[in-house]
Simulated scan of single mutants.
Amino acid sequence: MTDLAGRLGPDRVRLGVCCTLWWNDDFPTIDAGIPFGQAVSEMALAGFQGCSIGHKYPSDPAELKAALDLRGLRVSEPWTSTYFTIGKMYQKTVDSFEQTLATIKALGGDELVVAEFGASSHLLPVDVFANRPVFSNAQWDALTAGLDTLGKIANSAGMKLSYHHHMGTGVMTRDDIDRLMASTDPDLVFLLLDTGHAAFAGDDPLELARAYAHRIGHVHMKSVRPEVVSQVREQGLSFQQGVELGVFTVPGDGAIDFRPIFEVLADADYRGWLVVEAEQDPNKANPLAYAMKARAYLADVLGW
């Protein structure tokens, strides 16, 4: 047992895993043919308490909840892409968010995750660094006002909204995150700390955790392979190419030491999900093996 076992124990945090170990929702060609049932069974077998929602999951909330309940799993978060920075997408974004909220409520979840994908380069076969959007002041205003609106909707439903900074988007770097946090209501919009995306973008996830410790609402835990990060930068590769080359991996592998990050979260009395997420090619990285590697590492560091 470590000191973290008490301060980040199972009475305070829940451990989840994203289905991106088993397949990729952004890039359907990154797939080894693993079906939904096998994936969620392996999540439970590896010792996790919850999972994200993916495109292979049943669309009917009752069917999905029954399948997860059978395995002792809960939904850690659903994902909603926002498009506040591009034309004629405000109402569609709000409507999509409200649909997602209804689904997660039916599943017994209480957290929502969003990221602004207006003009994002992360899905395109282009240099992910050189072609990511840089928002104008008007776009920033539209984004932050829109996020505050979604935060109010979530709050009124008893749920928490966390923003996911992401490679290839207009909120990718530390400077972007700082501006977003400074321009949104801290009671309505929280930060999803994604260690892998921070490191890939060239920032220090530990420093990011320290800066926003008391505003972190959700955590995605993934590590990076620095040699692949350098390759993506130097060769001008796309986000998909980086994923296929193995830029991301699970905690316990790669370059990120999670213990000091957990210490920061514990000091801030963090309560919520710690979710393993490592977008890898399941044809190269056996999903169950990597899920178990991550869970063993977390057991060693957290003490449970």
Rank of each mutant, 00 (worst) to 15 (best):
Gly6Lys: 03
Leu8Ser: 08
Leu15His: 08
Gly16Lys: 14
Val17Ile: 14
Leu21Ala: 02
Trp23Val: 01
Trp23Gln: 01
Asn24Gly: 05
Asp26Val: 07
Phe27Ile: 08
Phe27His: 13
Phe27Arg: 15
Phe36Lys: 02
Ala39Pro: 07
Val40Glu: 04
Met43Glu: 04
Ala44Gly: 03
Gly54Trp: 11
Lys56Asn: 04
Pro61Glu: 00
Ala62Asn: 12
Ala62Gln: 13
Lys65His: 03
Lys65Thr: 00
Asp69Met: 06
Gly72Trp: 02
Arg74Val: 01
Arg74Lys: 07
Val75His: 05
Pro78Val: 01
Pro78His: 06
Pro78Trp: 03
Thr80Pro: 01
Ser81Ile: 05
Tyr83Arg: 15
Tyr83Leu: 14
Thr85Ala: 15
Thr85Cys: 14
Lys88Gln: 04
Lys88Cys: 00
Met89Leu: 07
Thr93Val: 02
Val94Thr: 11
Ser96Val: 01
Leu101Gln: 10
Leu101Lys: 08
Lys105Tyr: 02
Gly109Cys: 03
Gly109Ser: 15
Leu112Ser: 06
Val114Ala: 07
Glu116Lys: 15
Gly118Asp: 03
Ser120Met: 07
His122Val: 10
Leu123Phe: 12
Leu123His: 15
Leu123Gln: 14
Leu124Ile: 00
Pro125Lys: 12
Asp127His: 08
Ala130Met: 03
Asn131Arg: 14
Asn131Trp: 07
Val134Phe: 06
Val134His: 15
Phe135Leu: 11
Asn137Tyr: 07
